[in-house]
Design a protein around this nucleic acid. Structure first.
Lengths: 220, 220
DNA sequence: CAAATGCATACTGTATACAGTTTATATGAA
DNA sequence: TTCATATAAACTGTATACAGTATGCATTTG
């Protein structure tokens, strides 16, 4: 009898989580070349499982592998941001459409999250915004689609955090979310999807202008 | 001076390509547990680079890793197929929209590919169909989007090939493509996008019914 | 005969060693 | 001083070794 299948992972998985977190929150800065020996020591493991983790992160798009030079944190670039950011408006509305109008209980949760978001600042605001969107599509039967959205989320999060580190106060998306909730309460799924699409497109400008400044500064 | 950076890859990359190919074309069957020692011998390398490749393929969704049991080829399932197949109708039309009406030269190439496709059978037909769609969005400036489409292509290809192995003759999408080309020649980009979306949704039924039969057969 | 137990085998997970390449430093020439 | 060259150090890519876990088979027990 197999009771529960404990499913404790192996060191490689833990390493992947750790490194992914370091990339997203900037402890490993964009463009950095990472030193396998040192990183392995920091994480308390050997290079072999670390490198397995890094291979996975390359496929996820978090790292770039350059033969004989090693692994690099994928640089932040205006081009990459605009391209990645253009994906979610295609995915999220469809996920919501498939999920349908959320149950009353879930709508209440969305309102709660949004209220918290309106008061939140910094990293916590980003966390809450992501949590809100995940909650919104929680009932989506297409799990592949949801997983895809999660991936894109991680990829854009780096930009949001990097911006936040420099500019501090960024207006959050509370009012966008309210509009979506209103539409959902009216049972108007299509209006909600349209509002969601708009929400996914807003939030672009501050990062774009910041990235442009950043490029200008570097080439000064 | 650094001229050209030869960029020859390492063994891990080659291994990833090899294993991916084996999965897509069925030499490694869906659900198979793979034996690292044997596979490494077959490919003529050691387990270390092989395992790095396998880690990457897990992130790509081609394999599943079960701690202490090893790597398994992701099984084919009706659920997975329907979910993966639902993604491209969201992506391809937008990619075409961003690419715009192709130049005359490229349209000619599309017509040529489509003519070949109409006569082709088996694996070659699938190759040509994929090539046709890549050609269609070749000018899309959003390379992240194109890369995403490529990934989904690989993921559905397994199903198409598996079906083909059992049922042989599957009607191809030549007429769908013709409609798209006609719209493009009229400079009607939106009509072309709409036709493309329909094209991406057709081709679903034969595989769905086959997968259902397959499930029925197994649970007999 | 069926089920449980113990043992041998095979395989995965991780560490370590080493070869080949890149990068940094020092040395010498223009 | 500046550029080029040689040399040493550091790092990546790969193989191998070994420990711990799972699997299958034989044996024992009820």
């Amino acid at each position: 009898m197999h009771l529960l299948e404990t499913e404790r992972g192996n060191i490689s998985e833990a390493a992947a989580d750790a490194v992914r977190a370091m990339i997203v929150d900037g402890r490993l800065a964009a463009g950095d070349r990472l030193n396998e020996v040192r990183l392995a020591q920091q994480l308390g493991l050997s290079r072999t499982p670390l490198r397995e983790a890094l291979s996975g992160l390359v496929a996820e798009g978090a790292l770039i592998a350059r033969p004989r030079l090693g692994y690099f944190v994928r640089p932040l670039s205006l081009e990459d941001f605009e391209q990645v950011y253009a994906i979610r408006p295609l995915l999220d509305p469809e996920a919501l459409r498939l999920a349908g109008i959320p149950a009353a209980k879930r709508i209440a949760k969305l309102e709660k999250l949004n209220a918290d978001l309106s008061k939140a600042k910094g990293v916590r605001a980003i966390d809450l915004d992501d949590a809100w969107h995940i909650e919104l599509i929680a009932e989506c039967p297409n799990k592949v689609l949801v997983e895809l959205i999660r991936n894109i989320m991680v990829r854009t999060r780096r930009y949001e955090l990097a911006l936040m580190r420099e500019k501090v106060n960024v207006g959050n998306a509370t009012t966008d979310h309210e509009k979506i909730i209103v539409a959902l309460k009216k049972n108007d799924l299509e209006a909600a999807c349209a509002a969601l699409k708009r929400n996914m497109q807003s939030g672009r400008e501050p990062i774009v202008t910041w990235l442009k400044e950043r490029v200008a500064r570097k080439t000064k």
